[in-house]
Amino acid sequence: MLDDLSLFVRVVQEGSFLAAARAAELSTATLTRRIQNLETRFNCQLLNRSARGVSLTPIGQRLYESTVAQVESLQTEVGRLHTDTADHRGRIRLIAPINLTHHIVQPLLQTFLSENPGIQLSILLSNDVENLAERQADLALRFGNQIDSGLRQKFVGEFPSVLVATPEVARALNGAADMQALLAYPCIASLEERYLVLQNRQTGARSNLAIEPHFHCNDLDVAIATLESNGGFMHCPYLLVREHLASGRLIRIMPEWEGENRRLYMVWNSRNLLMPRTQLLLNFLVEQVGAIGARLALELEHRADELT
């Protein structure tokens, strides 16, 4: 019915069926039938037809005056939407983990926004499993395979983790390979970590070491800073301690032991159709973040070979 009302307004504004049909890119017969359907729906005549064109009946005048503003507003908004989707304009709402954003995502987003100036971006930093619908988010980056059937997901990449310690603790361990030796020293961990689940890359042996963290925090950068200040050991993403290891502020310990890589996914609500601008960001982050994860894994493997 909205389409028919729009055509009715166009006929009035163009002054004839022929001119309105050309403007709407319809045949005159199709346009005439659509207006007749509208008159049948209202059970009244809306237009007077003559060889000179059309004129409004009194009821047609009332309908035109009550709908023209809404129809024109709708046409303007539809035109804006077409422009936005074609030119990748509009706002995208993204949820992303805190530390991943600080170290990888934020620099990449600067590039993305500079390449797509018509896009506005809102980011919620959270390590929690936020409800995308409640947060009105288009996309979310999450670690771990998602079991929510209401979400679609796309694998982004894997990120390796390492055991690190302050230099004093590393010297005291003196190359120890027994995981139990760690329990003599303060443990720093993320909030959810209660066990060190690691596998020996040389023997295949597995370790499931229960830990009681002296300090734990949902912001791993804060946890790492605490480790440096207070001493101890920590199992954390290699991404976050690369510079610490390179400078000697932290030392990698027990390199033969490694945890499972953290698998990162991009997720979105399965009921939502991704707008072109959102698909553009999804593809960009999957490509760029995935490539960084692969490079980190190769770099860490090379360092592990040097240490063992």
Score class of each variant (00 low, 15 high):
P107L: 08
P107H: 03
L108R: 10
T111N: 09
T111I: 14
L113D: 12
N116W: 10
P117A: 07
P117E: 05
G118H: 10
I119F: 02
I119W: 01
Q120S: 15
L124M: 14
L125G: 11
L125S: 14
N127D: 15
N127I: 11
D128F: 11
D128P: 07
V129N: 15
V129K: 15
V129D: 15
E130H: 14
E130Q: 15
N131M: 08
L132P: 05
L132S: 10
A133E: 15
E134V: 02
R135D: 10
L139H: 08
A140V: 05
A140F: 07
F143G: 08
N145D: 10
Q146Y: 05
L151Y: 13
L151F: 13
R152S: 13
Q153I: 05
Q153K: 13
Q153E: 13
Q153P: 00
F155T: 06
V156H: 00
V156F: 00
V156T: 04
G157F: 09
G157I: 04
G157Q: 02
E158R: 15
F159Y: 00
S161H: 09
V164N: 08
V164P: 07
A165F: 05
A165E: 03
E168Q: 15
V169I: 15
A170G: 14
A170N: 10
A172G: 03
A172V: 01
L173P: 01
N174I: 07
N174Y: 08
A176L: 03
D178M: 03
A181V: 09
L183N: 13
A184W: 05
A184T: 12
P186V: 09
L191N: 13
L191W: 01
E192R: 07
R194H: 11
Y195L: 06
L196M: 05
L196R: 00
V197C: 02
V197G: 01
L198I: 01
N200W: 06
Q202C: 08
Q202W: 02
T203M: 04
G204N: 07
A205L: 11
A205G: 00
A205F: 04
A205T: 06
R206A: 14
N208L: 06
N208I: 02
A210E: 13
I211S: 04
F215L: 13
H216E: 03
N218R: 09
L220T: 12
D221A: 06
V222K: 12
A223G: 15
A223D: 05
A223R: 06
A223M: 08
A225W: 02
S229T: 13
N230F: 13
G232A: 09
F233M: 03
Y238K: 00
L239H: 08
E243K: 07
L245T: 09
A246K: 11
G248F: 04
L250D: 06
